[in-house]
Design a protein around this nucleic acid. Structure first.
Lengths: 198, 198
DNA sequence: GAACTTACCGACTAACCGGTATGTTACCAG
DNA sequence: CTGGTAACATACCGGTTAGTCGGTAAGTTC
């Protein structure tokens, strides 16, 4: 991937942010790693918060939403999709190292939502979008008969999202990948309960 | 509650920590509010990390574990206990203001677990204890016939804890108390699925 | 090739923060 | 009354950090 200097700086600082959070992030220190100086950074960006907002919009948002997007046009059983393309993928792609770092979205929510309204609204949009995609998927599942009629799409969407958030939190502390997997399976089991028996 | 200066300092800094996290905490600034100075603080404590560890041990741990302890000697249906004495109490005691601040335990986990091993182990003990109490309760529920035999106590305990963690994370961003309540009810519903029909 | 712009460097500054050193006061023991 | 100590206050220090600013080299335009 060829990248201009601006985007290189953004991605480089994003990497630092994944490790240290936003407040712990030292932009100057981070961009040294790609052979650029503070001057370059302040040439492209106004200040530190602006960099944070842009990272959320340009990097974190598309990255987080990517696995949800295909559900928008998915015709089959939404529970299948969630289990196979979200939970299962998460399970397979997660190694102990990324586990302790958690999810960039939820980390930022945790750190910045109460402190900075600009961060909060941007992160809220991301999570709201994901929830909308999930609940809309469940709703269509009810329509095409793959999901039981009494299922509440919004509640299920919230459940999935909140469970994922919780799993990341616990993974940070227990560092036990089995606990992580067991929790993912529990979500899967709960979702099975909303399948329409044919 | 009458308190000596040492404990006053600890509680005062704890309040600041709830707002700003540990890294964002400014001890000097915090204790000004109770009319004490930096000198007093360093008279009672060695450094900032030590204060953090002591807050975890002396304030956060008992506060977080309090609702779980009675389950240790609870003879009835553990699912009843969890629903009525943990989830329900949480639901009733939570106002929008405390909602955005989240749970002190999970906040600290999120912020400090990857950065400071001393914090991590102390927080791990707290969450492990709560999980043990929960899973032991479920196990006894299986024994006395209130919980279905196929229930996995540890998995259910993890599920409850991780769900609670997730709920707090989402509450931080959506600030919608209804989403919080709906999520609590979802946990309740899932737990209902493990009741032994009599 | 002159005028101008873009991209970047790196020294510097002002503020802040954790921690220390040096008091000062109040009380208590002998 | 005196020496000692616990309980603080306050001035200060060293390091760090976000952000500024003057400069420069390499294009770009006309």
């Amino acid at each position: 991937m060829v990248m201009n200097t601006r985007d290189k700086i953004l991605h480089c600082i994003y990497e630092d942010m994944k490790l240290n959070g936003f407040q712990g992030l030292r932009p100057d220190n981070a961009i040294k790693k790609i052979g650029l100086s503070k001057g370059a950074m302040y040439h492209y960006f106004h200040d530190k918060p602006e960099i944070g907002y842009l990272i959320v919009e340009e990097i974190i948002q598309p990255e987080y939403l990517a696995p949800f997007i295909p559900l928008l046009s998915y015709e089959g059983d939404p529970i299948d999709y969630i289990q196979n393309n979200i939970l299962q993928v998460l399970k397979e792609s997660t190694d102990p190292k990324t586990l302790v770092l958690g999810s960039p979205v939820f980390n930022l929510v945790q750190e910045m939502a109460p402190l900075d309204e600009e961060f909060r609204t941007r992160l809220e949009i991301i999570l709201e979008t994901a929830r909308d995609i999930l609940s809309d998927g469940i709703r269509r599942g009810k329509e095409n008969g793959t999901v039981v009629p009494h299922a509440d799409p919004i509640q299920i969407a919230c459940f999935v999202q909140s469970s994922l958030a919780g799993i990341y939190t616990l993974a940070k502390i227990s560092r036990d990948i089995n606990l992580f997997i067991s929790n993912l399976e529990m979500i899967s089991d709960v979702l099975d309960g909303f399948r329409q028996k044919s």
